[in-house]
Each structure stands twice: as structure tokens, then as C-alpha cells.
Computed example of a mutant assay.
Amino acid sequence: MNWDPGAASVNKGKFYTLMRFLRIEQTLFSLPMAYLGAFVAIRGIPPIQTLFLIFSALFFLRIAGMTNDNLADREIDAKNPRTRTRPLVTGAIKVWEAKALIIIGLAGFFISAYFVNIWAFVLSPIVALIVMTYPYMKRYTAFANYHLASIQGLAVFSGAVASAGLYYHSLYCVLKAVPWPFVIATIFWALGFDLYNHIPDAEFDKQMGLHSFAVLLGDFALKFAGLNQLASLILDFLADFMYNLGPIAYASTIAHGLIMAYAYFLANKGNFGSAFYYNIYSSIVLGLGIDIDVLLGIPKFF
């Protein structure tokens, strides 16, 4: 119950503290999913410049979003025994530093989007708004869990817009090229692992008047997480078929499902920390597998 992905040990230096504060490794875990969207949208490999700009946009938006999340929750985190060692709570990261990081992150995101293509830039304020409003939603509704999950889905969506926008001149055509089944599947998958964060805090959140499906559903919350991830897996297989993907894509989808199942087993045993990280690993397996499948163009099953 003491696990916290945002915790930072003291006396390990500013760089370490900053990396824990931003949970920067999760940016790298999201990258294969962004590239999944980019590859599947055009059934090919985008230019190297576009791939770099996708990484840049994801990296900077992660900085802004995670910093804003920590800043909005710092008083709540200070009262929660599980989150009391977060850098903004302990003072290892100052409030003014956090505000500066938000400005840097948003500026870097919008500049990256500008250089991707016109449609990425046009849609960037909507993406930023969804990311930056998340920490306030849990004050009002349990659907804040889906709000967070939609941010993960935006990685797939944004990658698709980045590549499709190079080839289509209308927003309609760009949005049509987005692999929506993968976007929705990613949302269902992320809802599951987000609940692994919230279930240990259900009693605390209830006392603080915060909302989540962990609070709303009580003992059924873990099953709800599992059902969402089962729906995610079904949609992933459907998307593999719809987009005529090959054996590597199907194999990676199976592996993705097996890792999710093991993560659910760990969560059921109360090991929410390991369950959380195994879920992140599952997205890497799925994203990389489909990226490689598109890259190699191996003959399809159907």
C-alpha cells in the first residue's frame, strides 16, 4: 500500500528528483503507442523528422501535464501517507520551478506541433486542454479515471494526426485516417491500470471528497478494471483485423493480453505497484509489435 510511482528518495540530487517528479520513463512507455498511431494511419513509416517531432511533442506535453498534476494535488498529496515523499510536497521541487516547467512544457509542445503539420497544430490546443484539466476532474466525477485514460488514447490519436496530416489536406480525411479502434482500446487499457493507482487510496479519497471508480464501486473496482482491459484486448484484435495487420501484430496483441492478465493477478493479490508497471510494459509490447509489423510488411493472415 506504500507504493507510489511519483515518490523520490531524498539526497539523490536534483536530476534524479526531477526525473521522479516527471515520471519521465512513462513518456518512453507511451512512445510506441504514438508511433502505432503514426504507422497504422498511413500503413507505412513517416519521415524521420516527423518521428522525432512526435517524440518531442510527447516529451514536452508530458512535462507540462505531469507538473500540472503534481501542482494541483500538492496539498492533497501532503495529507496522503502514500504520496508524502513527492518532490513538490517535500520542497525538493519549488512551486516556482513547477510553474516554469509548465510554461516550458506547453511552449515545447506547441512549437513541436507547429512543425509537425498544420492539422497537428490546429488540434494541439484541444489536446493540451484535455491533458491540463485532468487533475481537477476528480474533484467532481469518477469519470476522471476515463479522462486520464483518454490522455493515453491521445498518444495514438496524435501520432496518427502527425503522419496522416502530411498526406491529407482536409481535417476530415486526417481524422478518418486515425485508427480509432486502437485509440478506444488504449483508453480501456489505461482505465484499468489507472485504477491500480486509485484502489489503494479509496478510503483516503473518500475522506477527502475525491471521486474515482475505486470510491464509487468499492470492492467491484478491481473487476471493473479487468473488464475494461478485456474490452481493450477484444478491440485490439478487431483493429488488427480491420487494418490488415500481420502475424507480429497478432502475436504482440496476445502478449499484451497475457501481461495484462498477469498484472490483474498481481493486483488481485494486493501488489498494485507491480501490477501498474506490468501494464505499462504491456503497452510497449503491443506498440512495438504493431510498429514492427507495419515496418516489415509481413504477409497478412486474412
Rank of each mutant, 00 (worst) to 15 (best):
G108Q: 08
P125R: 08
D77I: 00
L101C: 07
A98I: 03
A107R: 13
M66H: 14
N80M: 12
W119A: 05
I111T: 08
L106Q: 07
S124G: 04
A113G: 10
A78G: 12
A98G: 11
L53P: 02
N80Q: 11
N117P: 01
I63D: 01
L129N: 15
A64C: 10
A78N: 12
V89Q: 00
L58A: 15
A98Q: 10
I102N: 06
P81F: 09
I111K: 06
F109I: 05
R84W: 10
R74Q: 13
T83V: 08
F52R: 04
L61I: 12
L88N: 04
I111H: 08
V122Y: 10
T90A: 05
F59V: 02
G91E: 08
F110Y: 10
A107Y: 14
R86C: 02
F59I: 01
R82W: 07
I102R: 12
E97G: 13
A72Y: 13
N68L: 15
L61W: 01
I76Q: 01
V116P: 01
W119T: 02
M66E: 10
L88H: 02
D69H: 14
W96Q: 15
V89A: 03
S124P: 03
I54P: 00
G91I: 09
V116Q: 05
L123V: 13
R82F: 02
I103H: 12
N70T: 09
A128Q: 02
A57H: 04
N68I: 12
A128S: 11
G108Y: 08
V127P: 03
A92K: 14
N80A: 07
F60S: 02
F110N: 03
D73P: 04
S124W: 03
A72C: 13
F59D: 00
V122R: 13
V89G: 01
G91L: 10
A100Y: 13
A72F: 10
L123P: 04
F115W: 13
N68C: 15
I63N: 00
K94Q: 14
T67K: 01
K99P: 05
S56M: 14
L101H: 03
F55A: 07
T90Q: 05
A92T: 12
A120T: 05
F121V: 12
D69N: 15
K99A: 10
F109R: 03
K94Y: 11
F109M: 06
